[in-house]
């Protein structure tokens, strides 16, 4: 009887571990497949010109997506510039002072905001910035992307700060350290790794967003670094190229996809490196 029981348990165990391993393998395979596909299809489109030149008209060979690379950096960078301070501040508030109804409300709103479809965020930015100003702009795109980043940063910051043991806060307070200073110099550094990773993930997620940019940043075949003008971005360029009927453009779409994936990957690696340095030095 007991022997039977034991055998049955061993079989269940093997089955469960097997199922979990299979799932993990499938997930890894899907990831590798996407990356490999983009790499194989995209690498042939890559050359120096692709990074350094402007797009050429249909039928004219050569050219690149330099304006979209710079445009994406501008739009995403501005979005982060707006969303990171506000998100950090909100996360700090929720974790350190937000045990009240206002805190609950903010938390709820952040969750709702996280669930708003990205195209709605684009329409929102369109109405309050583009429609008023009368023209598309990089800034309006940044605003839409920033709004998308905000809830992720708010909630990860809060979660990470809450993981910092209370004994550290009390340890600092007991030394006669003012509360704000305890948060800035003790609690926040202790959570920095997780917070930075959260920010990098949020940036990675919005860097590939297309819908919010359709009627905000709009796209632009020319050089533009003026944030008040429409600007090309990698996802929009990719979209335009991908749906075109021309082989050359479709191949460039793959190249653009590869550059986009590469940039997100680099951003993530930098984030991890920063985390490790922060962690090692401390």
């Amino acid at each position: 009887m007991t022997m039977n029981h034991y055998r049955w348990r061993k079989i269940t165990n093997v089955l469960m571990v097997g199922t979990a391993t299979l799932s993990a393998t499938l997930a890894a395979l899907a990831l590798i497949a996407v990356l490999a596909f983009v790499l194989v299809k995209g690498v042939s489109a890559l050359n120096a010109d692709f990074f350094l030149r402007l797009p050429t008209p249909v039928g004219v060979p050569g050219g690149g997506v330099a304006n979209a690379i710079v445009g994406s950096l501008i739009v995403v960078g501005l979005a982060a510039l707006f969303a990171v301070p506000v998100g950090l501040g909100t996360g700090i508030y929720l974790s350190e002072f937000g045990d009240n109804r206002f805190g609950d409300l903010v938390r709820y709103l952040a969750d709702v905001l996280a669930g708003v479809p990205s195209i709605v965020m684009g329409i929102f930015a369109y109405i309050i910035i583009v429609a008023r100003q009368g023209h598309f702009s990089a800034l309006s795109g940044s605003f839409a992307l920033g709004m998308m980043m905000l809830p992720a940063i708010v909630r990860t910051t809060e979660e990470m700060l809450r993981m910092v043991p209370n004994t550290l806060r009390e340890g600092a307070l007991a030394l006669g350290v003012p509360r704000w200073r305890a948060i800035v110099s003790v609690v926040l550094p202790a959570a920095a790794g997780g917070v930075i990773t959260g920010i990098m993930l949020a940036i990675g997620r919005i860097a590939g967003e297309t819908a919010p940019l359709l009627f905000t940043a709009f796209g632009n075949p020319y050089w533009n670094t003026n944030v008040n003008e429409p600007v090309a971005t990698l996802p929009l360029t990719l979209f335009t190229y991908a749906i075109s009927p021309y082989d050359d453009w479709q191949s460039k779409a793959w190249g653009t996809a590869l550059v986009l994936v590469g940039l997100v990957l680099i951003a993530n690696l930098i984030g991890r490196r920063v985390w490790r340095n922060v962690g090692a030095q401390k």
Partner: peptide, 18 residues
């Protein structure tokens, strides 16, 4: 200010990890 005159040591050692 008071806490600078009245220090405290806790149950679990809590050095600041960073």
């Amino acid at each position: 200010q008071l806490r600078r005159r009245v220090g405290m040591v806790f149950q679990r050692p809590n050095p600041f990890p960073t």
